[in-house]
Simulated assay, not measured.
Amino acid sequence: MAHDKDKLVDARGLLETIFHPNSRPSLRWLRQLQADGKIPYYKVGNLVFYDASEVRDTLHRLQRKPT
């Protein structure tokens, strides 16, 4: 049985899941990261879904700067 944390979410759900409401970026920002291939996503037909934990991990890696 899948847990809630294992569910795939749509773009709005992703932003709501991983960002605080006061610091939530725009849907346009998320779509640009997707188009640039910077975050993982899953396509099911014409629908796009995200694994919140995968995206969170990816954003942490992108944020870190090499020393």
Rank of each mutant, 00 (worst) to 15 (best):
M1C: 07
H3K: 08
H3Q: 15
D4C: 09
D4I: 09
K5S: 14
D6G: 05
D6P: 07
D6E: 15
D6T: 13
D6V: 13
K7W: 09
L8R: 12
L8K: 07
V9I: 12
V9W: 12
G13D: 11
G13Q: 12
G13K: 12
G13S: 13
L14M: 04
L15V: 11
L15P: 00
E16L: 15
E16V: 14
T17V: 14
T17Y: 06
I18L: 10
I18W: 06
F19G: 02
F19M: 01
H20S: 01
H20T: 10
H20V: 07
P21N: 09
S23M: 04
P25V: 12
P25S: 11
L27Q: 15
R28I: 05
R28C: 06
W29C: 02
W29M: 03
W29V: 09
L30D: 06
L30K: 05
R31K: 12
L33W: 02
L33V: 04
A35C: 02
D36I: 03
D36F: 00
G37L: 14
G37D: 04
G37I: 09
G37R: 11
K38H: 14
P40M: 08
Y41H: 10
Y42R: 06
K43P: 00
V44S: 15
V44F: 03
G45C: 04
N46A: 13
N46S: 01
L47K: 08
V48K: 12
V48I: 15
F49D: 00
Y50H: 01
Y50F: 15
Y50K: 04
D51H: 12
D51L: 09
D51M: 12
A52L: 04
A52M: 14
S53I: 03
E54T: 00
V55G: 11
R56Q: 03
R56G: 00
D57P: 01
D57N: 11
T58K: 11
T58C: 03
L59T: 13
L59H: 06
H60F: 09
H60T: 06
R61K: 15
R61C: 00
R61H: 09
L62I: 14
L62V: 14
L62C: 13
L62D: 13
L62P: 06
Q63M: 10
R64P: 07
P66F: 08
P66L: 06
P66Q: 07
